[in-house]
Amino acid sequence: MNKYITKLGEINADEKNIVTFPQGIPGYENLRKFILISPPEISPIMWLLSLENSNIGFPVVQPYFVKPDYEIDIPEDEMKFLKTDKPEDIFVISMLTLRKNPDDNTVNLLAPVVISLSNNIGIQIILENYNYNTRHNVKEELLKAKAAEKSGDK
């Protein structure tokens, strides 16, 4: 266990839970060490926190929470980068942009962060040829998903 100062204060992190982003994250290319934590009180939000810069941390969600039919095909090159060939190793999260007015909250479905759970390597990938963008309104997507679920029930 090591102590780290993060955007949310001091945390203890076990070496084996640290996620390494060998290329950093776009905009933060020099930051390599992050930790993903999911405190139950903020579920479904999770935190992806930099362990190297205490100003940097992202609220994230699993994209399926916002868009139940979300699907991505991770290109072979990126699977190689993540050093895995098992889809079940892959954990996908999407960055949230939280605003003062929660109706304006957005989620980036175009550029998900994918983490290989077997070795804790991560990368933010940019999907090509998908109908996703970087700013899906969370409320609208949730309402759409709810409507789709209802019509499916009938």
Partner: peptide, 30 residues
């Protein structure tokens, strides 16, 4: 496209606890 992702990442990192609470309220109301 790359600039857009950089700019969204920068926006994402600017949050406060208060925003998290309103997010949860929004989900409950939906």
């Amino acid at each position: 496209l790359y600039s857009e992702i950089v700019s969204q990442n920068k926006n994402s990192t600017e949050f406060t606890d208060e925003f998290v609470d309103s997010f949860k309220d929004m989900i409950s109301s939906v």
